[in-house]
Nucleic acid binder design. Sequence first.
DNA 1: CACAATAAAGAGCAGTGCTCTTGATTTGTC
DNA 2: GACAAATCAAGAGCACTGCTCTTTATTGTG
Lengths: 228, 228
Amino acid sequence: MPSTPRERARVDTMRRILESGNRQLAEQGAAALSLRAVARDLGMVSSAVYRYVPSRDDLLTALITEGYRDVAQVAESAAAGRAAPGRRFVALCEAIYGWAREHPHRYALIFGSPVPGYRAPQDTITDAARTPAAAIQLIETAWAAGELDDPESPPASAGLRRQAKELRTALGTQLPEAVLLRFAAAWTQVFGVISFDLFGQFVGSFEPGDAVCAFTFRTAARTIGFRD
Amino acid sequence: MPSTPRERARVDTMRRILESGNRQLAEQGAAALSLRAVARDLGMVSSAVYRYVPSRDDLLTALITEGYRDVAQVAESAAAGRAAPGRRFVALCEAIYGWAREHPHRYALIFGSPVPGYRAPQDTITDAARTPAAAIQLIETAWAAGELDDPESPPASAGLRRQAKELRTALGTQLPEAVLLRFAAAWTQVFGVISFDLFGQFVGSFEPGDAVCAFTFRTAARTIGFRD
DNA sequence: CACAATAAAGAGCAGTGCTCTTGATTTGTC
DNA sequence: GACAAATCAAGAGCACTGCTCTTTATTGTG
């Protein structure tokens, strides 16, 4: 469909802009991402880039979306296989962790402090939901097979139970609300420990952080109710 | 000791610079923090600020240190009292959460993605350690009173056990290494859920996030071994 | 071929961090 | 009290940023 050579040149330039942006991101971080640098990198004038990307924030959005898709793909392929769901959950966590260590700036862009004045558009949410969805599917597998324990949980407030119920219908899952709550607590644990490691909060205590991450991933799995 | 009026003027100007910087931080975030804006705010010329603050990053460092002290003070006073250690731990978490919601930009500055090119100097670590130290003291209190449960933990690797042992001597605590590991896993959970809420990761699921935070704090307390 | 759509270029505005020099003021000492 | 020394505010300037505008060149199509 991209018949005309002009159009082909356009999509190619667009792809090169995204590539260069990702390079900038990986090398110097989000704050150093500048359209001028992208233009320099590509050997074109800065104003020309604005024909492809409306603004710097839009370039950031494009890179964020790409990052969400990337990490989701990594997580999904790690969750595949025939191993026990609990082991696959830990593998999923380790896959996210590996991706994060490989692309710390992209991880920070997605799961770190939001860039001020930037509001993630709605369509990023669907991509963002893919990763937790992969984890939830593992939980469902274990639950359907009756392999999910039911560890004692703290009491949930009425408001929280309502939120969980709404989420249950929104996800279209059969899982009990209590499991969803435990998943939420465990999920924040997974990203909490990854962020602690990547953002330097373990400096002076658990360094390097891969061991404490692995331990925490297993702790999170137990929190959910996975065996083994 | 504030002898000379020149010196008094200097410390006063320094204090006003920090105040203005904190205002900028609260209103527009770390990325928007500019020495020129501080100078404008204070009615002085931009170059004059450089006589007080060597660079923008140094101003950031000063604000970070102040933030660490602030949150530590909030946590410590929340941990005080005669209630059961478990309840005080949850109160400590809630206090951190409250502080974070009150000062989201300062929280992001401290616990969010690190600003690129910025390396936290060593003396911030001592202030940073105060908050977890307050939590650990609660654990010690419960443990000394024999009120700390010993929930089953996943196995820890040899490297992790060594790190825990080193941390144990560094902290000068009597707590078993297994408890320290559980604390690490729980601590990341606490900050994980706070960050999820503040950084917008709960959009579309648990919104508002105070209920899931409260639930997760209690889950973290159980992970450590607190009763009730 | 001619015309319209599109791309690239360049200039320019307002902002940033930071450095340097210049002149003014205050300070401690003789 | 006078004077050199230390300190300060101010301004100009450099290189960079995001972004907008106008002008020129290129391309595809009627």
